[in-house]
Design a protein around this nucleic acid. Sequence first.
DNA 1: TCGAGCGGACACAGATTGGTTACAATCAAG
DNA 2: CTTGATTGTAACCAATCTGTGTCCGCTCGA
Lengths: 214, 214
Amino acid sequence: MVSDFLNEQGFRVTKEADGQAAIDKIGRETFDAVVLDIGLPGADGFEVCRTVRPKFSGPIIVLTARGEEIDEVIALEVGADDFMAKPVRPRALLARLKVHLRRGDTAISEMVSDAVVVGDLRIDEKSRSVLAAGRNVELTTAEFDLLLYLAKRAGKVVERKSVYVDLLELPYDGLDRSIDLRVSRLRRKLGDDPTQPTRIKSVRGVGYLMAKPS
Amino acid sequence: MVSDFLNEQGFRVTKEADGQAAIDKIGRETFDAVVLDIGLPGADGFEVCRTVRPKFSGPIIVLTARGEEIDEVIALEVGADDFMAKPVRPRALLARLKVHLRRGDTAISEMVSDAVVVGDLRIDEKSRSVLAAGRNVELTTAEFDLLLYLAKRAGKVVERKSVYVDLLELPYDGLDRSIDLRVSRLRRKLGDDPTQPTRIKSVRGVGYLMAKPS
DNA sequence: TCGAGCGGACACAGATTGGTTACAATCAAG
DNA sequence: CTTGATTGTAACCAATCTGTGTCCGCTCGA
């Protein structure tokens, strides 16, 4: 019913009865907004929301069972932008959808938190800019991606292989210098002495470690 | 009851039983948020909202009578940020309040101004006119749309794909230069040197970034 | 102490990417 | 229907980036 109504209102609507199917579809195609029913088979609404939130930047509206306060609180916690109690009143849903779409506000910004801060490094994912000790640092795409990757895992040793696979999106052949090189260039731009690195430490035989200030 | 609950939760709450009184109070004192019941004597919730909106920049949440769709639609139109059906469930209200306060989003920006300003650029959506450093700039439709799109997202890197999909309303095939071309022409008209752009920066491998003055 | 292995770094070259021009298709106004 | 503006496609070019190959120095274990 909701689907039909929105369709009449000029939205192009895709329905999905199963949670997992929805996750897949959202990953593959592009949508402006997602309306989620909590009580889905496969993967429930929360699950879908949690999974999809980091990838999907538009508004997510969750339909909760009537009067279930807990649901609503959880929904917001897993990154939904809004929730409505069932039974759904189409016009109200429409109003909300419009507000969110127009305003372009979404919880993704806070969930994914667009600035990663590690020590005196401040990495803004949205503007792809980096401040080191308050000073702006110009990085290339590959360098930025690497830095972001490491910074998000600050305090953990990341294997060279993982970095390679995740960043290059290629299978790892084992004899590769490209990550080292990226690190090398990155260190230079960040003013990190490779023999005595403060920020990105090498872990021999394993990979790298972005130092987290204690 | 709502008031008491929020008080317990650490909010400092001021109650007002009469609409006009509320308007006065909001004008005189400073509040972080406003929760409005539609069915107030004196001036009803809509009236309060309309009057107060231009002055008050925080979130306004409206409590509507159960299931009154029309109310909700109107509420949003007069500038409320959110609405909830009565009877009020305190925890849900709390959740919403927190979201709005944290996100700091409010309908005021769209209500009050219809011109997007970025640095010395002033883009009037209504009249589709653009001022750059006080000087009028003639743009074509496509150029204006692009500029507006970027300006609304100033400070964020927008993917070439998103621009394409949102502006052209076509699926993105990956090998497209039309956006680049638009950017190129736009830069020229705005007097932005492509090799050292001040306004629209290219982010290699990702997209474009409209520079926001810090 | 010596040697093997690993990581750092340089230079170069191929690849990718974005800017731009020219031209064709499309659109809009008269 | 004609004409001029607008917009996208194709093609070309230039710049930048990024990885491979390579060499060197350091580290660790024997």
